[in-house]
Simulated scan of single mutants.
Amino acid sequence: MINLQWQSFSKEECAKKLRTDIAKGLSQQQAASRLRTAGPNELAKPKKKKLLVRFFAQFCDFLVIMLLTAAGISFAVSFYRHSSDYIDSIIILAIVIINAIIGVVQESRAENAIEALQKLSSPCARVVRGGKEYAVPAEKLVPGDIVILKTGNLVPADIRLTESSSLQVEESALTGESIPSSKKAETVFPPATPFSDCRNMLFS
């Protein structure tokens, strides 16, 4: 269902394929069922690196490699001379390890801060369910939802338009053009039409 070329179907055909009602939308029960089946409306999150992987990744820096090389040379010279003075090697290794720990801590804090900002900036969407209008988090949208968009709203998901009036959308990330794209719900396009030319579709 997700891979269908929605721009090539009329809005009535889209509604039929998605088993939804253009006027009333899905029922709350249908929406809940589809959310369980299709999952949240969000991109798959990359797996977090394990702590050890992050730690050893800190040693891939060129400067760190140079310091480790210097520590190795210092250790080899002391060993060759049968000297027990390994203080230089120990100091360099300590600096490298402390630097790696600081790097892991800073990386973890940065990731946590980004996640917190994403949660705060998570957009809401207005949908019609059971004939009534509701505000729901964008990640709770499901296939078949009737979404209401107004001036200034972010597009919360990929959408096949069912109704529009002098609609223009900023799609520079998709089209490469700074001029807003005009949209029209009634138009139907061939299946092979590039996304940037699908005037009856919106993309998040």
Score class of each variant (00 low, 15 high):
residue 22 I to Q: 06
residue 22 I to Y: 00
residue 23 A to Q: 08
residue 23 A to C: 05
residue 24 K to S: 13
residue 25 G to W: 01
residue 25 G to V: 01
residue 25 G to L: 00
residue 26 L to H: 08
residue 26 L to K: 07
residue 26 L to E: 04
residue 26 L to D: 07
residue 28 Q to M: 13
residue 29 Q to Y: 02
residue 30 Q to A: 12
residue 30 Q to R: 02
residue 31 A to C: 03
residue 31 A to P: 01
residue 32 A to Q: 12
residue 32 A to R: 08
residue 33 S to V: 08
residue 33 S to P: 01
residue 33 S to I: 11
residue 34 R to E: 09
residue 34 R to I: 06
residue 35 L to M: 11
residue 36 R to K: 14
residue 37 T to V: 06
residue 38 A to W: 12
residue 38 A to M: 09
residue 39 G to A: 06
residue 39 G to Q: 03
residue 39 G to W: 04
residue 40 P to K: 03
residue 42 E to D: 10
residue 43 L to T: 05
residue 44 A to E: 15
residue 46 P to W: 07
residue 48 K to Y: 01
residue 48 K to V: 00
residue 49 K to N: 08
residue 52 L to S: 09
residue 53 V to I: 12
residue 53 V to Q: 14
residue 53 V to K: 12
residue 54 R to A: 03
residue 57 A to P: 04
residue 57 A to N: 15
residue 57 A to V: 05
residue 58 Q to K: 10
residue 58 Q to P: 07
residue 58 Q to S: 14
residue 59 F to C: 05
residue 61 D to V: 08
residue 61 D to F: 06
residue 61 D to W: 05
residue 61 D to S: 13
residue 61 D to A: 11
residue 62 F to Y: 14
residue 62 F to S: 12
residue 65 I to C: 15
residue 66 M to Q: 11
residue 66 M to D: 11
residue 67 L to K: 10
residue 67 L to M: 14
residue 70 A to H: 02
residue 70 A to E: 01
residue 71 A to F: 03
residue 72 G to P: 01
residue 74 S to T: 15
residue 74 S to W: 08
residue 74 S to M: 09
residue 75 F to G: 09
residue 77 V to S: 00
residue 77 V to D: 02
residue 77 V to W: 00
residue 77 V to P: 00
residue 78 S to G: 08
residue 78 S to F: 03
residue 79 F to S: 13
residue 80 Y to P: 00
